[in-house]
Design a binder for these strands. Structure first.
Lengths: 239, 239
DNA sequence: TGCAAAATAGAACGATCGTTCGTTTTAATT
DNA sequence: AATTAAAACGAACGATCGTTCTATTTTGCA
């Protein structure tokens, strides 16, 4: 299974030709307000979903006319794609790149999960676009779904790679199934989002952290398996 | 934390007064077509979501007029609630009650998970209302959200109860945290739904089953921890 | 078989949606 | 300061939404 490296500025480089042409003729002011629109759109989309995101509501938030907002994207679909790309960039900056400063192996894997947890915990109020978008575009083919799936796969591949490296470093058992381990970790994040955001079950954050410890204990090499504490323990885990 | 028993005919008994009055004057034919409408609506809702469910599309599927369909419910919201109730009833019949025939403790817990897995596997094509609805009604208060959350909580409480009973029977460690165990199991189902339905990752079903074995191995009492095989192994787990 | 009631149809409503078009205002450049 | 292009506006479009109303058909019961 091929796992590609997360490119630093992939979001900007991989834009559709249409948007690229559009921005080639754009003036600084245009780019600035477009960025502001995308920012507001991201805020709306994480709350009411990518499908619920309407240009009318977005225009109202921006104190602009519908057509004024619309002109920056050319279609609602292009707006949705821009929102997904923006989310992807922020996710990278907040979760992926900071963890890359940790040494390969268990420290980096811990940092990836800790950062992921911190972001998901914050998203208990706002909502996660990768989770919400997955449900909305389950069986709705098209460029928005492709963009979403591509972003998520890139992130999960990074997680998988960290597990493989931890195995190479001898921090997890040599016979550990990296895909299996990444799958179980993914489940913890999803359960946290579901139970904390929808059901509002108290203690979900602590349970996700504990679940990660359990996974590490299971797959940890018999030699250097510390009692496993998170790099950056989130304050307020007890509730 | 109180865990209530799943009442056998709760769905019929707990209907809103408005719908109850309506059906008090209903003729057999009316109830019959209403059931058919709810059935079709459930099919649509699992695919495009409860929010995407429109009366117009539903009427087209039913070969009826919009107003004809509408009259059975009085509002779109009441239709959505009916769909959630129907989903709840089917979930009970398919997942919960069959497992109750298994003896308390580990066998029943295994059966609950196996049935849950079987249903979620089938829903890779159709979609799960409990998962999709949770995302759609994350922060959208109202009776639909209440109905959804109530149903899910009832089911998760049943799962929790099975874990507690397995602990009482000595099938899992006496110091095991039942809420924690139920949380981790829930995560496996969510990861399966996400990776199989949205990302179409091969092997997800097998990974969910393996994850359950890992959880049982972790929490299993040192005495009677069999190598853990599922009651009803789903055919085609390898892919 | 006749009669009342329930079930369904059909048309129309106000609202909102994404989108288009022509115009006007604003910004960037010479 | 003048010129040109980009940005924003405002009105309107066709479509679809949930809902309401009245009329018609169908059903269940005496």
């Amino acid at each position: 299974m091929p796992v590609t490296e997360l490119p630093r500025k992939s979001s900007r480089l991989s834009q559709s030709p249409r948007a690229a042409v559009r921005e080639a003729h754009a003036s600084p002011k245009g780019l600035q307000t477009k960025a502001a629109i995308v920012d507001a759109a991201l805020g709306l989309a994480t709350q009411i979903g990518l499908e619920g995101l309407s240009i009318g509501a977005l225009a109202e938030v921006m104190h602009m006319s519908k057509s004024g907002v619309f002109a920056h994207f050319g279609s609602r679909e292009e707006l949705q794609i821009s929102v997904v790309r923006e989310y992807h960039v922020r996710f990278e900056d907040e979760v992926f790149y900071p963890a890359m400063r940790e040494p390969r192996g268990l420290p980096r894997l811990r940092a990836l999960f800790a950062n992921w947890m911190r972001r998901t915990s914050a998203e208990i109020d706002s909502g996660c676009l990768y989770i919400g978008g997955a449900v909305e575009f389950d069986d709705r083919p098209g460029p928005v779904r492709d963009e979403l799936a591509s972003s998520v796969r890139t992130w999960l591949a990074a997680m998988y790679r960290a597990v493989v490296q931890a195995r190479e470093e001898g921090h997890v058992r040599a016979d550990a199934d990296a895909q299996q381990m990444a799958f179980e970790i993914h489940g913890l994040i999803l359960a946290l989002h579901y139970e904390a955001r929808f059901l509002k079950t108290p203690g979900s954050i602590a349970r996700a952290n504990t679940g990660f410890d359990h996974i590490l204990a299971r797959y940890g090499s018999d030699t250097g398996a510390q009692p496993s504490r998170l790099i950056h323990p989130t304050p307020g885990n007890k509730e």
